[in-house]
């Protein structure tokens, strides 16, 4: 990947992180921790990988994206705004009664949202359904989905993965946002889904492990996924919950808590610093 493209992806990821903070702050509710941890994956999908057109959100041949961890909608909405699907100013109406930006993604209300999600474990099944439809129709679109690592405690996730492998859905690429934390604490303390890599492999998926904040690694993993034939690919993205905001990093408490004004300003200042550094790099 060109240096310029890499820089652009880093910049978009940082802007999406700022969008996340401002959405959750203006709503005084939402989920900053897991939104920040998947921001780099989302930026690669929306600004490099996916074949999408903001003018045609229902384009039949588009690539699909299902945010199975639907509570991280601020990351998705940030990407949709920066990509031109929705006006950026609408982000500040996130979760408000007058707005279409529901707490969890609604495909009926929001241009660019391919599936309504929020109830954990279901998005991945919907992605499987889209991939099955693509195979049936002989279409070459690809389907992407992001699972939370707490989310995979849901049994339905494993039904979906079994199905994806059975039907050899090599047009499906799934990310595990492996940040190690869920609402009540460490995933290994709450109800450990580990070892995730072994389990995914046992379920018939090809597994690629990457640093989920390194755009280069994410891009390379997707390239490999595209070349993989006969099985779906799981990209286990090792991530940090709250990534990019120093006081939110690795704190389960920031799973579903909004920052106050002071915290918001501090977070935005940190992310602005990062943007400034990217400019001079």
């Amino acid at each position: 990947m060109e240096i310029q493209k890499l820089k652009e992806l880093k910049r978009y990821a940082t802007i999406i992180r700022k969008d996340i903070i401002d959405q959750v702050y203006s709503a005084a509710a939402g989920h900053p921790g897991g939104s920040l941890s998947c921001a780099d994956i989302v930026s690669v999908l929306y600004f490099k990988e996916m074949r999408i057109d903001p003018k045609r959100p229902h384009w039949e041949d588009r690539d699909r994206f299902v945010l199975s961890k639907g509570h991280c909608s601020p990351a998705l909405y940030g990407a949709l705004a920066e990509r031109g699907f929705i006006p950026k100013e609408d982000l500040l109406k996130f979760r408000q009664a007058s707005s279409y930006l529901e707490g969890h993604p609604s495909m009926k209300l929001i241009p660019g949202v391919d599936m309504s999600t929020g109830s954990l474990g279901q998005g991945i099944s919907a992605a499987v359904g889209m991939a099955l439809a693509g195979k049936l129709d002989g279409k070459d679109y690809r389907v992407y989905s992001i699972l939370g690592d707490g989310e995979i405690e849901e049994g339905q996730v494993w039904e979906a993965l079994m199905c994806a492998a059975h039907y050899k859905l090599d047009n499906l690429t799934v990310f595990l946002d492996h940040n190690g934390l869920q609402i009540d604490g460490k995933i290994t303390d709450v109800l450990s889904p580990e070892p995730v890599k072994d389990k995914f492999e046992a379920f018939g998926l090809k597994v690629i492990v990457v640093n989920g904040h390194e755009h280069q690694q994410i891009v390379e993993a997707i390239d490999e996924a595209k070349k993989t034939k006969g099985k779906p690919v799981m990209i286990v993205a090792e991530t940090v919950k709250g990534k990019g905001v120093s006081f939110m990093e690795n704190e389960a408490g920031w799973h579903g808590t909004a920052p106050n004004k002071e915290q918001r300003d501090k977070a935005i200042a940190e992310l602005d610093d990062l943007l400034a550094k990217l400019e001079v790099e």
Binding site: E60, M107, G129, A133, Q156
Partner: peptide
């Protein structure tokens, strides 16, 4: 559970 949601995903692709 997977069947119902996968059916929804397929339906979103005009099935």
């Amino acid at each position: 559970a997977n069947m119902m949601t996968a059916a929804a995903g397929m339906a979103s692709c005009n099935k």
